[in-house]
Design a protein around this nucleic acid. Structure first.
Length: 293
DNA sequence: GGGCAGGTCTAAG
DNA sequence: CTTAGACCTGCC
């Protein structure tokens, strides 16, 4: 992995000989709600207020609308390209079920997403389904974000800042069909924009302290907090305990198995187990798009 | 049409 | 400390 080849033009970066990288796994494992298929083997979306398109053909990945400088300072980390996933997967060999899951999910990478957007997204995710989660995030961005790109009449928007959402008020957030989550989003926006919660500080906190800290926000419990820590801060030991993982644990592991059992990369193990389980249930095969692939 | 969705809050024991 | 219910909404 470390010896992939980087080439570039003025506005695109090409990565050759890349391994442990699958766009469909990365964007369909449920960590990210902002990228959608825009063509054959291509996903487009907005992150860090920039629109990019990413295509993959076997071991070659092309990032469009990306300069080599932006790749080095942002997208390389966004796609977690400095981490040796092959080594991590190898470290799971003590567990046969996890080995199967991680080999099946070997193209999965934990994206390094924006803390504020990730926090909001997973507040929205509670007691909700993926199509609606995506819809709400899209509406929030369209209504209160800024237009960052336009193509074929389709407009793309950044995710609104905490300050913006605090400013528009709970009622306005509720009107976007966010339901009972409106007051949670508003509380998060207030605490973050006022500095009561400093999202930057979390980078230097340990996972336990960060879990407690994030849960000061109304509507943030252990599941949402651990998703934020894993998907925005790369705290790989954060272990989101959702209904699927509970199901997996009760079906394949002894009673009382905890996150600690999975070690320092428990979060990555969780994603592999989650993806493996959901694929075997056919959850990701339900859309017409996926069936044709 | 009713149940359900990648949780969390609140009110009770 | 643990455990039910309720919760907005939209899509299967």
């Amino acid at each position: 992995m470390s010896d992939y080849i980087i080439k570039h033009t003025e506005s695109s970066v090409i990565l050759e000989n890349i391994t442990e990288f699958s766009l469909s796994q990365i964007f369909n494992c449920g960590q990210c709600f902002r990228f959608n298929p825009v063509g054959e083997h291509t996903y487009g979306g907005v992150a860090f207020s920039k629109y990019i398109e990413v295509s993959q053909h076997e071991n070659a990945v092309i990032l469009n609308h990306v300069t080599i400088d932006e790749f080095c300072t942002l997208w390389c980390d966004y796609f977690d390209l400095k981490t040796e996933y092959a080594e991590i997967i190898k470290s799971f060999s003590y567990d046969t079920y996890l080995t199967s899951a991680s080999e099946f999910s070997s193209g999965l990478r934990i994206l390094r997403q924006e803390p504020w957007e990730t926090l909001c997204s997973f507040i929205i995710s509670q007691n909700n389904n993926i199509p609606r989660i995506k819809g709400i995030i899209e509406t929030l961005s369209k209504t209160y974000g800024e237009k960052v790109y336009e193509k074929d009449g389709k407009e793309y928007f950044s995710f609104p800042s905490a300050k913006t959402l605090a400013g528009v008020g709970e009622e306005a957030i509720f009107r976007l069909r966010t339901g009972f989550r409106a007051k949670y989003i508003f509380d998060a926006a207030n605490k973050v924009s006022s500095g009561e919660i400093d999202l930057t500080q979390i980078f230097s906190m340990n996972t336990n302290d960060a879990m407690q800290y994030l849960q000061k926000i109304c509507g943030v419990g252990p599941k949402v907090a651990s998703c934020v820590l894993l998907f925005a801060y790369h705290k790989y030991d954060a272990f989101p305990m959702d209904v699927w993982v509970k199901k997996i644990l009760s079906a394949h592991y002894p009673k009382g198995t905890t996150a600690e059992y999975f070690g320092p990369f428990a979060g990555i193990a969780q994603q592999c187990l989650f993806y493996y389980e959901r694929c075997s249930c056919g959850v990701f095969l339900n859309t017409k798009k996926e069936v044709t692939l």
